[in-house]
Simulated assay, not measured.
Amino acid sequence: MTFDGFQTLAIHAGQEADAETGAVVVPIYQTSTYAQDGVGGLRGGYEYSRAANPTRDALEECLAALESGTRGFAFASGMAAEDTLLRTVAEPGSHVIIPGDAYGGTFRLFSKVLQRWGVSWDAVPQSDPDAVRAAVRPETVAVWAETPTNPLLNIGDIETLAGIAHDAGALLVVDNTFASPYLQQPIPHGADAVVHSTTKYLGGHSDVVGGALVVADPELGERLAFHQKSMGAIAGPFDAWLTLRGIKTLGVRMDRHCANAERVVDELTRHPGVTRVYYPGLPDHPGHKVAERQMRAFGGMVSFRLRDGEEAALRVCERARVFTLGESLGGVESLIEHPGRMTHASAAGSPLEVPDDLVRLSVGIESVEDLVADLLQALGD
């Protein structure tokens, strides 16, 4: 039986009832190795859990289905997924275009790790297709997009970026962590590969660290499978199981994240101490029309700037009580952070440095009245 509804896929793709026991939840295959029926006689193709594990296989099949890709891969972290992809498609002398406000960890990977390996990069605003096109070089192997970006929530037009990348013989890679596959599926819009930190919305409960790749091209999938096995930064079986459990409620959670974020944004836009709110659901957001076209809704992430500068931003972060001061995002609980000193500290002093009066919210699924009241008291009302 085949099915197409997102929430049905989230619950059933790769997760058929166990043939022997009828268990409706995929078991945790907490094993490193597998008995063989003679030399090379593998049962179900399993020999060693770095190469394959039934729990991880279930997660990878589910991820591919949710992102409309041909193959999915689960990793120990989002950064492990990024590194494996880049070492698969790039080599010394290659060039990659990254967002002008990329996630700090992605920027660090390029500037501190891959640059030493001989991979060059340019950071350009990916909401500006002309700037992206102008940055392309003969050695460009990938355009790396985040949409929405972290933490300024800029929007890139996936179809346009795919056209630019493909005209140059390069790949379009989209970090879909902020949107999740429930709100946005880059592959049908032309992306070649999708990256996730599954720690965030896919896991959804702040209890597991993981990463994922989903690709459109089976040949790229074969190359990635080789590198995943060879480099070894795979998701363990319990982490894969926790992520699968989180995915089952992704759709209903995202509906609540989005609804709560819209209410929070409404309050922030009317507050005298706030000078700017970054949220693609706002009609005056520069990427609103593009986001409206390629997203189901506008997400649970909100950033804003304070009239009284960095000290005010730090004070809001410290005074919040329902919003927990912490890094990461996408969990059921609301988080607040100061990107300049926390998640994006690695970009300090670079062209990707974020404003020091910026606060980032991951709006959770608590009662929205409590979230609004907490923000207002933190802001001084």
Rank of each mutant, 00 (worst) to 15 (best):
P181W: 08
L172E: 04
P125L: 06
E353L: 08
Q7L: 07
G221N: 03
S367L: 07
L220P: 02
Q185H: 08
R319Q: 14
A191N: 09
R223N: 02
G349I: 13
G246E: 04
A10P: 08
A23V: 02
E267R: 12
A168M: 01
T84M: 00
V277M: 07
G22N: 08
R315N: 13
S111W: 04
F110P: 05
G273E: 07
G41A: 14
L202Q: 09
L109C: 01
R360E: 13
T84D: 02
I336K: 01
A191K: 07
E353Y: 03
E318Y: 05
P283I: 10
I155E: 05
A65Y: 04
Y34D: 01
E267G: 04
G41H: 11
L282P: 00
A320L: 05
G246F: 03
L42G: 07
L171K: 13
E311L: 10
Q115R: 12
E159G: 14
D239A: 15
T140S: 04
S68T: 11
T275C: 08
A233R: 13
C258Y: 04
D128F: 03
L361W: 01
G72I: 13
A17F: 01
D255A: 13
H288Y: 13
E310V: 14
T198N: 01
P181G: 08
V195F: 10
N154W: 08
S206N: 12
D130Q: 15
S120T: 15
I155L: 03
V372S: 04
Q115V: 09
L268D: 02
T177R: 01
Q115H: 10
A58Y: 01
A168I: 01
P188S: 11
V143P: 01
I164G: 00
E222V: 10
